[in-house]
Design a binder for these strands. Sequence first.
DNA 1: TTGTAGGCGTTATCAG
DNA 2: CTGATAACGCCTACAA
Lengths: 332, 332
Amino acid sequence: MSIRDVAEQVGVSIATVSRAFNAPDQVAPETRRRVMQAATQLGYVPNSSAQTLRRQFSKVLGVVLPTLLNPVFAECLDGIAQMAAANGYSIVPMTTDYQLAGEEAAVNRLLAYSVDGMILVVSNPQTSQELVKLQARSLPYVLLYNRHADHPCVSVDCEGAMGQLIHRLAGMGHSRIAMVSGQLAASDRSQQRYRGYVNGMRECGLDAYDLVEVPFMDAVVSRLAQFLGAARRPSALVCSNDLLAIRCLRAAHVAGLEVPRDLTVVGFDGIELGRDLTPVLSTIAQPNREIGRRGVQLIVQALGKGRTLDPAASLTLSHEFHEGESCAPAAS
Amino acid sequence: MSIRDVAEQVGVSIATVSRAFNAPDQVAPETRRRVMQAATQLGYVPNSSAQTLRRQFSKVLGVVLPTLLNPVFAECLDGIAQMAAANGYSIVPMTTDYQLAGEEAAVNRLLAYSVDGMILVVSNPQTSQELVKLQARSLPYVLLYNRHADHPCVSVDCEGAMGQLIHRLAGMGHSRIAMVSGQLAASDRSQQRYRGYVNGMRECGLDAYDLVEVPFMDAVVSRLAQFLGAARRPSALVCSNDLLAIRCLRAAHVAGLEVPRDLTVVGFDGIELGRDLTPVLSTIAQPNREIGRRGVQLIVQALGKGRTLDPAASLTLSHEFHEGESCAPAAS
DNA sequence: TTGTAGGCGTTATCAG
DNA sequence: CTGATAACGCCTACAA
């Protein structure tokens, strides 16, 4: 059922039907009524492929995320969806599973869909070919969580945040502080957080541990429990994300340690679930929904001006340390 | 950059460019090479709006889910994405936030996108107007998690599962077993699980508690802690989902109870995170990814046959009780 | 207020 | 093996 069917049913031209939808005030009230009724009755919905083809925009924003299995991104997407809806945009989320090939596939597909703009979390803004592709087409885009001087980004200063955290822990008497992360190569955030850790440790005059890199989430608990059982085990663990921190909590238990008495654990992200765990997860909380919202806002603004987004429009939102219960002064 | 630009660049007709993409063997190897090179160079990607308009299918499946903040659905979506990709389909997920209005909006938008089929989790299959709409258009669809004789569904027998659970708990000496759920009206699954609870209690000769309905996730811990502090508190809590069960764990702690010594807590869903909590969450695990995969499989089959899906094609997958650590015999 | 018609980017048919 | 062209559903000048 296309616009034709509605037109025939009402006995009017297709132009009138189109107008009834797009410029209701240009059509006689009675005609409009009959058109709308027929449309409802037939279950007519304007075909957006045709619309997109004819207009030269789609009112759709593409969203590229690593995964939705990490609540950080699910929360962020929630914010994106909210703000997009509020501005009359639809979103099409795609997932890359932290793979470069996934990023390329997602971007290409979204380009084919003629999205009006794109919001993405990439692995490495510096080397991403996809971003070049977007620039070449002058398609407005914004990065979330990523930070890079050459691209418009919405993020928090995670390097600084991690540095502050080290200072705080040092202030609580911790000196044996280790850092746990996922695959470092898969995320510039982890790299920045690690830099923050290294710098923080240096500033505090402490010896940094080698990074504990746990590429696969399923083996992480046993791997960590083993680490925690070793000699000169750390008294505090900082994690590059909350999901990892939760596994550290478990690993500590498996290793016979009690948190926070025997081990302090701090995460990064501020996922909502962390607040309802026991112990409540200490974490550096990012405003995940707000990051999503602001990203959309920037894109919508750019779209309004018919412009692409300037890297100078980048936003650094503020993070917040959530004290939680997984964090305590070092035993003296 | 459209097919025209590529054609001009190569000095060939648009038909040839089209064929280079869709029927490579019908075009001379050398021509094909030049077309492909020009396409890459120009960054040409076939416009899928135009494709969808011309072909009468999109190779896209619409997915309608309540939320992605609950990992059950994120995991399920992961399965959907996998299987869809394996069959050459893209997916467009939309979220309803458990609202009927959201279901309508999502379905309408997906119809406008001319998706080839739809996979959905609805609030109430019995009364859903959206499903009627899909039937009227003979658009293949399948429900996930929902169970209803008149619709093709992929689900587990959650009523039965909950009944079995009650028997198991009763066998462990529990007699004061209460059930906690979210807003009952928002989900037929919860209703079925509650039925299973009521029946199970009756079969075991136990008095069912009034359902503890906690509509808003944020108030749930204090609400529950209060409940757990009351006289004749239950010795076991069964929850209509894992997210709720995790909050119950917290509420127990807040109320000064130790799980499982003072209180047994069992969830429903089997989200992956539950396995890494302390205590490990006991739960009735559903094969979430598999549910997603099988749903796609059914749709793809139907699409292959050019048919709509028969309710008789419904699948009941098996659930599995995960013992966990949040579960223990009743104190004697 | 309403109708006519061209064209958005593709694919597929039909000739050559 | 390649080219010309109609049609997919819609919107929007331009006419009436």
